[in-house]
Simulated scan of single mutants.
Amino acid sequence: MPEEVGPFHLNDYVAYVQEFIRHIGPEVNTISVCQPTVPVLAAISVMATHGEFTPRTMTMMGGPIDARRTPTAVNDLAMNKSHSWFENNVIYRVPPNFPGAGRRVYPGFMQHTGFVAMNPDRHVNSHYDYFLDLIRGDDDSAEAHRQFYDEYNAVLDMPADYYLETIKAVFQDFSLPSGTWDFNGTLVNPADIKTTALLTVEGELDDISGTGQTRAAHDLCAQIPEDRKFHYDVEGAGHYGIFSGRRWREKVYPQIRDFIKQHNQPAQPQA
């Protein structure tokens, strides 16, 4: 994104989600994974507050809706470092001769390094197994490894404003669950959502979004009827396992598919 187009903020993300929902129309079903669960819930909440239609279903997977619950190492870092620490230590300008030159960003390579550093032994063992698979001629296993790491390594530079505001709102101020998030003059209130069905998904071994952080959406969306709220714990799954690989294909996807099919009726405008 060229520097001259201006900044990109967390509330801009929320506004884009709303724009996408309005463009698709009332038949839309939303699925959000990890950090986007927070702005997606905010976007739908504000639409409900303003009396707009809301999606037929919301599926939220492994996201820090309330990062105070079962904090992980990721949460602890964000909570224990000041806003200025992040700005001074992880924000850099895009070098010349690259798209977006001059823009302040949280570089993708730093995010990637942080993820790998959380479980270095697991990644070393995975690459060693990949080497053995190549020697044995196990092409299927080797290709599965390549596909996973092609996706795992595909990180993106994030605009500094967006990144820093996310750290503050999600992991330091807990603005969504505390009811203090101001979106362009409107307080974000998930309790205004009434008709959208809700499914939350968490991994038993998730070390990025801890147990209960995503499920917190059930408490916040207090006016969604209980028979339209569902939660699924994925046994044996880490963070990536809930949306990638065998557990996603065999366990999680069928749950989401059936949930959307069951609740894929028109959502009425909020009263």
Rank of each mutant, 00 (worst) to 15 (best):
M1S: 13
M1H: 08
M1N: 00
M1K: 04
V5T: 12
V5K: 12
G6T: 00
P7C: 09
F8Q: 12
F8W: 04
N11Y: 03
D12E: 14
A15T: 07
A15P: 01
E19V: 00
R22E: 08
H23R: 14
I24P: 04
E27N: 10
P36G: 02
V38I: 13
V38L: 03
P39L: 08
A42T: 05
V46N: 14
M47K: 03
A48S: 09
T49M: 11
H50E: 15
T54W: 12
P55F: 00
R56F: 07
M61K: 01
G62F: 05
G62I: 11
G63T: 07
D66R: 01
R68V: 05
R68Q: 05
R69K: 09
T70N: 14
T70H: 14
T70L: 06
T72E: 10
A73E: 13
A73S: 14
V74K: 14
L77H: 13
M79F: 12
N80K: 10
S82R: 05
H83T: 11
W85F: 09
E87I: 05
N88W: 08
N88H: 10
N89Y: 14
I91C: 11
Y92P: 12
V94W: 00
F98M: 04
F98Y: 12
G100Y: 09
G100M: 06
A101W: 06
A101V: 13
R104S: 13
P107C: 06
P107Q: 03
T113K: 04
F115A: 11
A117C: 03
M118I: 07
M118V: 08
P120C: 11
V124S: 10
N125I: 15
H127D: 09
Y128L: 13
F131Y: 15
L132Y: 05
L134H: 07
L134R: 09
D138E: 03
D140I: 01
D140P: 10
E143S: 10
A144G: 05
H145F: 15
R146Y: 09
R146G: 06
Q147N: 15
Q147W: 10
D150L: 04
D150K: 08
V155D: 10
V155I: 07
L156G: 06
P159D: 11
P159A: 08
A160D: 01
D161N: 08
Y162E: 11
Y163V: 02
Y163M: 08
E165G: 09
I167N: 08
K168W: 13
A169I: 06
V170D: 12
F174Y: 12
P177V: 02
S178M: 08
S178Y: 13
G179K: 05
G179I: 01
N184H: 10
T186G: 02
T186H: 10
L187M: 03
N189K: 12
I193D: 11
K194S: 14
T196K: 06
A197K: 12
L198R: 06
V201N: 05
G203T: 00
E204C: 06
L205N: 07
L205E: 03
L205C: 08
D206N: 00
I208T: 07
S209T: 13
A216R: 04
L220R: 01
Q223F: 02
Q223L: 04
E226K: 08
F230W: 14
F230Q: 12
Y232H: 15
Y232M: 09
F243A: 02
F243D: 00
S244T: 07
R247D: 14
R249G: 11
Q255L: 15
I256F: 08
F259L: 01
I260N: 04
K261G: 06
Q262G: 03
Q265P: 02
A267F: 01
P269E: 11
Q270D: 11
